[in-house]
Amino acid sequence: MLAFAAPARADLRVCNETGNMVSVALGYRAERGWMSEGWWQTPAGECRVLYQGDLERRFYYIYAVDDIGGGAWDGQVFMCTRDETFTIFGVEDCLARGYERTGFFEIDTQSRSDWTLQLTETADAPAVVGPDAGEDLEDPAFTIDPDDVTIEAPDDGATPPDGAPVPPPPADNAPPASN
């Protein structure tokens, strides 16, 4: 009798360790250029696969919002989003094309083929955390310095003024940080 091992699953996953429903958007460089897509509704205590299969890029970009309590996991890499389910190609001229301009934060997968991101909340605000010291490198999780993530309540849809400072572009294959 022959037994076959199931192939290891390699995906980009987000786990919601908060007490509320969280909506997640993903951005990355696809074959056609920069792309953003969303929304993955992630109930409290559950995980969602955002990108299925081996991760082909080192950098991915995430924006997540707490649907009940407010607050967001965001950053300084701007991509296009909208309130409904979306797949948007390009990161330029979001407002002119009828989309919102949203700040995503960068995930450096360190060129691994599988990655898990855990969204948690502290007593004051949401935070992004990684595994404890016993991390299994076969199933890595994302760790981020909380000083590198801007955490604030979502605004009423307003975007930064055109004169807002633009941060330096992220490393490697990151999209431009402009509208």
Rank of each mutant, 00 (worst) to 15 (best):
D145K: 07
S36R: 02
S178P: 08
G163T: 15
T42S: 11
A177Q: 02
T18E: 07
L2W: 14
A158M: 06
G53D: 08
A96W: 01
R13Q: 09
E56A: 12
I144R: 02
L12Q: 03
T85I: 04
G71P: 00
N16A: 14
E31T: 13
Q76H: 04
E37F: 05
R58Y: 03
T81C: 03
E135I: 09
T150M: 12
E121C: 11
G130K: 08
P170F: 08
F89G: 07
D136V: 11
A158G: 08
C15I: 10
I107Y: 07
I88P: 00
W39F: 07
G70V: 05
F104N: 00
M79T: 03
G27I: 00
P176S: 13
W34P: 02
R58E: 07
D124G: 03
G69D: 09
P146F: 07
F78N: 09
G45L: 02
S111C: 05
P140Q: 12
L50V: 04
W73T: 01
W73N: 02
E84I: 05
L95G: 04
M1W: 13
F86W: 00
W34F: 14
V49E: 06
T87H: 01
P169T: 07
A25M: 02
G90T: 00
V149H: 05
Q41A: 10
A96S: 04
E138Y: 13
E37H: 05
D145T: 10
G38K: 12
C94R: 01
Y99R: 03
P146D: 12
N179R: 13
L95T: 07
C47E: 03
L137E: 11
F78I: 08
L26A: 00
D155W: 08
G69E: 04
Q41D: 13
E37R: 09
R82I: 08
P161L: 09
W40N: 05
D136Q: 08
D124I: 00
L119R: 01
Q118E: 12
A171Y: 06
E17F: 03
F142R: 11
D67I: 03
E121H: 12
R101I: 02
Y28H: 11
V91R: 04
P168Y: 02
E121N: 14
T143C: 10
G71V: 02
F89P: 02
L137Q: 12
D147H: 14
T120I: 14
L2M: 14
D124C: 01
F105G: 05
V65G: 01
I151H: 07
E46T: 13
G163I: 12
P170T: 06
V22S: 14
P167A: 04
T120V: 14
A44H: 02
C80K: 01
E100R: 08
A171R: 14
